[in-house]
Amino acid sequence: MRESQGRVWTGVVRVGPGAGDHRVAIRAAIAVGVPLVVLWVIGRLDLSIYASFGAFAALYGRADAFGDRLRMQLSAGAVLLACMLVGTAMSVAAVAPLAAVAVVALLAAGITLLAYAMRWHPPGALFAVFAAGATATIPASLATVPLVVAVGGASTVFALVVTAVAGLVGARGRPAPSPRRSLQPVGALAGEMAVTVGVAAALAGVLGALLIGSHWYWAMVGAVAATGGAHMNARVIRGLQRLLGTLLGVLVAAGILALHLPPLAIIAVAVVLQAAAELFIGRNYGIAMVFVTPLALVMVALAAPSPVDLLLRDRVLETIIGVAAGTLVAVTSAALRRPRPAAEPVGCRGHDPGQGPIPHPGCGRRRPIR
C-alpha cells in the first residue's frame, strides 16, 4: 500500500523532460491571441469564448507528423464547433441544468470513443465537455447561432493556418510526407473508458448543479480529467494534479482579476497563460493547471462577466466535486473490471518427497479459494 502511495505522489510531482514544447506554445499563443485581438478591435469580446474554443484545435497533435497533425486538428476543431453549437442551442432553449448535464455527459462518452478511434492527442473529451458546458450556461438567442459558427469556425480555420505555416517553415517548405493513420478499432477497453467517463461526468454535473448551482460544467470537466489515464494510478495522479493545480491557479486568478485590467491587457495575460500551459501540459499536468485555471476564469470573465468571488468559489468547489466524483467512478470501474481469483483443484496439494505430487481421486474438481 505504502509503495503504491509513493508511486502516486512521485507521479504527482514529477516533471518530465521538454520535447519541443516551446514550438507548441508559440503556435497556441498565436492561435488564441490573434482572434481575441480581432474581436477587441471590432468591440465584440462577448464572443471571445467561442473564438477561444475554436483556437483549441491548435492544441491537438503536438507530437504527430505534419499531415496527421493537420487532420487531427481539423477533426477536433469540427467536434469543438459542434459542441459549441449544442451548448448554444441548449442556452437558447433554456434547457434545465440537469437536462444539460445529461446531454453533456452523453457527449463526453461519445467523444471519448471518437477520440480513441481517431487517435487524438490529447485524448479524451475534456475540451469538448468544456465547450459544450460553458456555452450552455452563457445567455444566447437565435441570433447567436450564426455568430458561433462564424467566430468559432474562423478561429478553428486560423488555428489550422497557423499549424500549416509553422509546419512549412519548420520543414523549409517541404514537410515530410506521412502515410495517413488508420482508425483504431474500438473494443471493450474503449467502451469501458467511454462508460466510465460518461458516468463520472454525469455524477459530477448533477452534484455540481444541485449543490452549487452555477458553473456545473467545471465539475464535469474535473471528472473527465480524473478518469483520464491508462490505469488506476494514472487516473488518481491526474485527479490530484488537477485539484492541487486548480487551488494554486485560483490564487493566481484572484490576483489577476483583482487588478481590473483593461480588455487588451487581459488578452495579453490570456496569451501568456496559454503559452505557459502548453510548456508544461506534457511534462506535469498539475503545473499546467496553475496556468489553465486563471486562463479559464479570464475566458469566462471576458464573455460573461460575473462577480469575482463567485467565479473563484465555484471553480474551487466544482473542481473538488468533479475530482471526487471522477476518482470514485474510476476506482469503482477498476474494481468491477478486476478478475476474480482462480479456483484451485481439490486434493492436489499432497506431496511425497520421493514420489512428487500425490494425485487425489477428487483432483480436477474445483473449489473457490477461501
Rank of each mutant, 00 (worst) to 15 (best):
G11C: 03
H22V: 12
H22D: 11
R23G: 10
A25C: 04
V34N: 02
V37A: 11
V41F: 13
Y50G: 07
Y50W: 14
A55E: 04
A57R: 03
L70P: 06
M84N: 11
G87C: 08
S91L: 08
V95Y: 01
A99T: 13
A109W: 07
G110C: 10
L114N: 02
Y116C: 13
M118G: 11
R119V: 09
R119L: 07
G124W: 06
F127T: 10
A131R: 04
P146R: 03
V151R: 00
V151T: 05
G153E: 05
G167I: 03
L168C: 12
L168P: 00
R181K: 13
Q184R: 15
P185M: 09
G187P: 00
A188E: 14
G191S: 04
A204W: 05
S214F: 12
M220D: 03
G228Q: 15
G229C: 09
H231G: 12
A234G: 14
Q241M: 07
T246L: 01
G249W: 03
A253H: 10
A253T: 09
L259P: 04
I267R: 06
A276P: 08
A277P: 00
A277D: 01
G282S: 08
V290K: 05
F291Q: 02
P294A: 03
L297E: 07
V308G: 02
R315F: 04
I320E: 08
A324R: 05
S333W: 05
A334E: 13
P339G: 01
P341F: 01
P345I: 01
C363L: 02
